[in-house]
Design a protein around this nucleic acid. Structure first.
Lengths: 145, 145
DNA sequence: CCTTGTTAGTTACAAAAAGAACTATTACCA
DNA sequence: TGGTAATAGTTCTTTTTGTAACTAACAAGG
């Protein structure tokens, strides 16, 4: 591999972000994978419902920036698995509110604890100040303010 | 959205990483998408060949941590589009060296400049020290050391 | 040499995603 | 009102992907 110009791909930020996200996501996936038989999009939906309570599919689309067809299919699966219930809005009958069933709540709490431990593992690799800064920067990059 | 327990999804690191990566990746994708008609994996291959020069598919697999089937398919496409040429090794006739054609070189330089500008845009949102720290942390999280 | 094992890269098949088009409902406004 | 546009969510079709199995070339020990 002879050449090497001044541009180092490995310090290109979007590249680094992707690699880091992929790595942590992969590692985390192993922890919950076969526990409730949920796919990534499914437990992301569960997370949102657990953390924020009753909300519509579109609310989740906006917050999580996941495509609506993915949400739609994930919700269908979650309803089949009895983790989520739909409730048609009376005001606007196009939308439906989603809530976790007791089984969904239990799964959420369980996954949340796994997430907390995982998060703590990452945090342990750095100082508190560094982690705080990382969160701040990622939030800004993600457009969460 | 009534509820909100002590676990804030928005500070969960893998979540933040994903969101930030998705955001920057989406924004960047728009810039090169229709320019050369390359998919993400394809220009990642171009980037590697441009930055490091002649190398084999396996070299790219190792460096970029992209699955070899993806590389294989990307290379096929890039050869069809005349951005890359294959050259079978004389020493070991299983492997083939990949290099950019002049057209590939031109595309690389162009995309590299876009990437630089994009990277600079991100960097401008923070101090130099912060960006340095971010890169360091992301590298460690990504397992690049 | 022959057998077994390893490596480079491709291909086949199944799972997942992205996009576009669709249904149903509501909103706007001339 | 009536007609057009917008929104919530689903479904259909086409691309991408991920996994596993495959071909071809080399390597090493008996």
């Amino acid at each position: 591999m002879p050449k090497n110009d001044d541009f180092d791909l490995q310090v290109f930020l979007p590249y680094l972000l992707n690699q880091a996200a992929e790595e942590s996501s992969l590692a985390f996936t192993q922890l919950y994978k076969n526990k409730y038989g949920m796919l990534r999009t499914e437990w992301r939906v569960v997370f949102h419902l657990g953390a924020f309570g009753k909300m519509t599919a579109t609310d989740i689309v906006v917050r999580a920036k996941i495509h609506k067809t993915k949400i739609s299919r994930a919700v269908t699966k979650l309803v089949e698995k009895r983790f989520v219930v739909r409730e048609r809005s009376q005001d606007d009958r196009r939308q439906e509110f989603l809530t976790l069933t007791p089984a969904g709540e239990a799964a959420y709490r369980d996954l949340r604890d796994v997430a907390k431990r995982y998060d703590a593992d990452i945090s342990r690799k750095f100082t508190d100040g560094e982690v705080r800064l990382l969160r701040m920067m990622l939030k800004r990059l993600a457009g969460i303010d």
